[in-house]
């Protein structure tokens, strides 16, 4: 069975590339391409696609408004958001708006096809739903440091290199208390209890110089 897809993105090269890639898959057919939210709504009403693949930042009508208008007229529409934004606020806003999935533009073609199939089959597919949702999950490679903030990662490397909190505070131009706070947050997030454990973990993950 073929999955009919309508795609909306104002970056023409990006849209055509994705479209071409999807069309080369035997069970997916891109039946229309749109340049903005206004065109998308008209296309969805005309073609009733199985999956709507759309960007958020678009001229004339933003993706968020477009989702709202599409769902007002086609409540069962299956919308998969294709976006360059990896921030949690974007993912949450799209989920709240009623999209069925969210995938980053930097993802591989395979993951995109996978996400389209899942959304078409009525599953949901969001980047952080992996644990909650066993059959509809999206694949994501997680580095052990991805749970840390940028600042915490800096502190992580300095701890791994054997620096004391005082030295770290000096190096990063912060108060001793802030450095200690970062350190205890890192331990908490990575489930560690000492700098020795941190160094061991860094070594195992190939993060030691």
């Amino acid at each position: 069975m073929t999955i009919n897809v309508v795609i909306a993105d104002d970056h023409v090269l990006m849209r055509q590339g994705v479209s071409q890639m999807l069309n080369s898959h035997e069970h997916i057919s891109v039946i229309d391409e749109c340049n903005d939210g206004v065109e998308l709504i008209a296309s969805v009403l005309k073609h009733s696609p199985d999956v709507i693949l759309m960007d958020i930042s678009m001229p004339r009508m933003s993706g968020l408004v477009a989702i709202d208008k599409i769902l007002a007229q086609r409540a069962a529409a299956k919308i998969l958001v294709l976006s360059m934004h990896n921030e949690v606020e974007y993912v949450e806003a799209m989920r709240d708006a009623g999209a069925k999935g969210y995938i980053l533009k930097e993802s591989s073609g395979e993951s995109l096809i996978d996400a389209i199939k899942k959304v078409a089959a009525g599953k949901i597919c969001f980047p952080d739903t992996e644990e909650k949702n066993n059959d509809g999950q999206c694949q994501k490679h997680i580095s052990p440091l991805s749970v840390l903030t940028r600042r915490e990662r800096e502190v992580f490397f300095l701890v791994a290199a054997g620096n004391t909190s005082k030295k770290i505070a000096e190096l990063l131009d912060m108060s001793l208390k802030t450095a200690e706070n970062h350190r205890s947050n890192i331990y908490k997030k990575l489930n560690l209890s000492s700098s020795a454990e941190l160094i061991r973990m860094a070594g195992k993950a190939g993060l030691l110089e």
């Binding site: 993706g63 921030e87 974007y90 806003a93 970062h182």
Partner: peptide, 25 residues
């Protein structure tokens, strides 16, 4: 902040707090 155009003021302010404050503990 494209998030302001894309999602509106509320998510944009939450994003701002997260980006500026989280890194500073």
């Amino acid at each position: 902040p494209t998030i302001l155009d894309d999602l509106g003021l509320k998510p944009a302010l939450n994003w701002l707090c997260r980006n500026l404050l989280e890194d500073e503990a």
